[in-house]
Amino acid sequence: MSNDYQLTFKPDDLLQIIISSKDVKAALPFNLPVLASSPSAISAQGIPKLQSYLIDGKGEVEFPVLGVLKLGGLTRIEAIDLLKDKLHPNYLKDPIVNIIITNFKVTVIGDVRNSRVFQVENERVTIFDAIGMAGDLNISGVRENVTVIREEFNKKNKYVIDLRSNNIMTSPVYYLQQNDLIYIEQNTSRIQDAAYTRSTGLFISLASVLISLITVITR
């Protein structure tokens, strides 16, 4: 069984959409103006930065000239084809469309070395890539019961996978989508050890208090 990777655009995605053509001037109205970011220590003028389109809660963006476009729910190829159909032949001949997600991120939490949100430049990221960015699982992390939370069609879906399985590469969460959350749980012995340590500390504290009281009373 194959696992065809298909990234789907979602609300709150920030997209850089660049339209180009042999006729450079004709393509200019379909691109957002370039802004200069804050000056850096290297350059007093700042670094040019492309603006991004925010996909709203309806899955739409406001695009120059073309107006409102529904990009939410589309794959990159589908979105590119949509824009090409809108542009050709009325506005541009053989337009070239490039789309990049600028806020692609995944979150890894639980029993790993470095729990946090990771900004990902390469959108083709696997669950092993994300765990690697988190410094791998701790020795007490449960590898056979890893949870991935993914938002699909305005609903949070939970997937449970076994990292040791031979079939993991066919899982729908082997390739991660933007905003996926990976949770690694602790094994039961680690949880029991932690509970024992807390109980032992409490017992020692109570014993110390009782010994102090007995000492005061018997003087």
Rank of each mutant, 00 (worst) to 15 (best):
N90D: 14
R113I: 05
N145C: 08
I77A: 12
T126I: 07
L137M: 07
I99A: 08
P95V: 12
I96T: 14
I99V: 11
A134Y: 07
H88A: 14
G135V: 10
L71I: 09
K93C: 04
D111P: 03
V112G: 13
V117K: 07
N114V: 09
M133Q: 09
I109G: 00
D111M: 10
G72I: 01
L71C: 04
E123W: 06
I131D: 06
V106A: 10
V120C: 05
T107K: 08
K155V: 12
V68W: 00
I101V: 15
K70D: 01
R76C: 01
R116Q: 15
K70R: 03
R150V: 09
R116F: 06
G135W: 10
I139M: 06
N98H: 06
V120W: 01
E152N: 07
N157K: 15
P89E: 12
K155N: 13
I100T: 13
I109A: 08
D111A: 15
G135L: 06
Q119H: 11
R150A: 07
K155M: 12
L92H: 10
T75K: 04
T126H: 09
F128P: 00
V120T: 05
L71H: 02
K84G: 10
K86N: 10
F118V: 04
T126M: 08
G135Y: 10
H88E: 15
V68N: 02
K84T: 11
L74Y: 01
D111R: 14
V112K: 14
R150D: 05
G73Q: 02
E151P: 00
T102E: 13
I131E: 06
I149R: 07
M133S: 11
G141A: 14
E151I: 13
R150K: 07
D85I: 05
E78W: 04
G110N: 12
I96F: 12
V120Q: 04
V146R: 13
F118Y: 15
E121W: 02
Y91W: 14
L69A: 00
E152G: 00
N154Q: 11
A130Y: 03
T147V: 14
V97D: 03
E78C: 00
L87Q: 06
I77Q: 10
I131F: 14
N103Q: 03
V117P: 00
F153E: 14
G135A: 13
T107Q: 11
V125W: 02
P64A: 03
V108E: 12
T126S: 14
I80S: 03
E151R: 12
I100P: 00
